[in-house]
Simulated scan of single mutants.
Amino acid sequence: MAFALPVWLGVQDHLLEHEGGTPSYFDQFEDEALFQMFHLTRPCIAFITDTVRIRMKTVPLDMASLTVDGIVMVALNYYAHGVSSCAVLQRVGLSQAECGTIINAVSGVISGMSDQFISFPETRDARASVAFRIERVSGIPSVLGIVAPAHFKIRASPYEKNSFRSFVNTLGHTSVVSQIICDSDGNILSVEKCCVGSTFDQDMWDSSIKGKEIEKDVHGPYWVIGGKGYYLSKHLLTPVSDPVNESETRFNEAHAKIYGVMQATLGSMKRRFRCLMQLGFAQEDSLNKKSNIIKTCCVLHNIAKKFSVPPPPVAGKIEPLLPGKQHSVPVEINPDALKAREKLIEENFSVVCRSQDLQ
């Protein structure tokens, strides 16, 4: 799924090696306090720290007196709460002013691990497995994932009018947006681009690496579930705009059910990594730093799922997915794609199909 098998065999080796290792800053916390501070468990944190340790050797950092686990502690605490707490900073001997350099360095390292810990199903068996689980949840066959624009709020100065307008999304908030694809279990399969909040969903898809691959049949005759901000294509399956019969209504209900997995996934990520609730001030030339933090949280999300770490409990309403931003000029639907969707609905959501399933 999201990770190759050798990685997870390596996890087991790591856990065995870590037992009885050198003392860590994290050892000073009891398990409950550790989770409250970092929203992760001890084995998960140990794996993350050792994985970062290997890669930090090639990253120049002026604060040579800091240990890797101290650096990781500061970064994980920031991801979990959106700010590094005084308790953590006192333990590692840092001030708030020094945190930015560390967070940027660690984010650069972990986001660079995305090709190892975030992967789209590449083999025939992997694709069949993902599609089977999605069909079991929704009844829609031959689907490889759910794609959506993931918006993350930022602060942009209204005095810089040209820049400010570009960050305003469909709800009138300033945000940056990344294109994310997940499976039915909430594993992140792809995260691409970090654009200003006003970017059209379809434009991100058309210019993304994964979008181009999927539309060119690189991944075979499969669909990806997309919301109303996307155009129906031979590989991008959108809901029926104005259903005229029960079959189309049932299809839309199934589509909404599986699309809701993305909302739950992003909600879980934002509860675990509250830095995503407010990514600070941004200019268009600083999108790379925001992109690194978003990718980092996606990597850590997948790692946390593999270690079966529950997210923090829900506090208030789960933030909904933003309404898709569409071009104002109507676009003619691809007739072949329309026929393909009609065939899918007829074969899987018609009254005849349902009556056969009940026999």
Score class of each variant (00 low, 15 high):
Phe152Leu: 03
Val92Cys: 08
Val147Trp: 02
Pro149His: 00
Ser138Met: 02
Pro158Trp: 12
Ser119Asn: 12
Gly93Ser: 00
Ala148Gln: 03
Asn104Thr: 15
Glu160Phe: 14
Arg127Ala: 03
Ile154Glu: 12
Val74Ala: 15
Val92Arg: 03
Tyr159His: 14
Val88Gly: 07
Thr123Lys: 00
Ser163Leu: 13
Pro158Phe: 12
Ser163Gly: 11
Ala126Asn: 03
Phe132Trp: 07
Tyr159Ala: 15
Phe117His: 05
Val92Asn: 07
Gln90Asn: 15
Pro149Gly: 13
Val92Pro: 05
Ile134Gln: 08
Val83Asp: 11
Ile102Val: 15
Phe164Val: 04
Leu94His: 01
Gly108His: 10
Asn77Pro: 11
Ala128Phe: 00
Leu144Ile: 05
Glu122Val: 04
Arg155Asp: 13
Val137His: 10
Ser157Gln: 13
Ile154Phe: 10
Glu98Gly: 09
Ala150Gly: 05
Glu122Ile: 01
Ser95Phe: 09
Ile140Ser: 01
His81Tyr: 02
Val74Lys: 07
Arg133Val: 07
Gly82Val: 09
Ile102His: 10
Ile146Cys: 05
Phe120Ala: 04
Ala97Trp: 10
Thr123Ile: 02
Val147Thr: 06
Ser85Gln: 15
Gly145Glu: 07
Asn77Ser: 11
Ser129Cys: 10
Ser129Met: 09
Ile140His: 00
Gly82Cys: 08
Glu135Ile: 01
Arg91Trp: 08
Gln96Lys: 03
Ala131Cys: 01
Ala126Tyr: 04
Ser138Val: 02
Val109Tyr: 04
Val137Glu: 11
Ile154Thr: 14
Arg136His: 09
Lys161Asp: 13
Asn77Thr: 12
Pro141Asp: 00
Met113Pro: 05
Ala97Cys: 08
Arg133Glu: 14
Ala128Arg: 10
Phe120Thr: 06
Val83Asn: 11
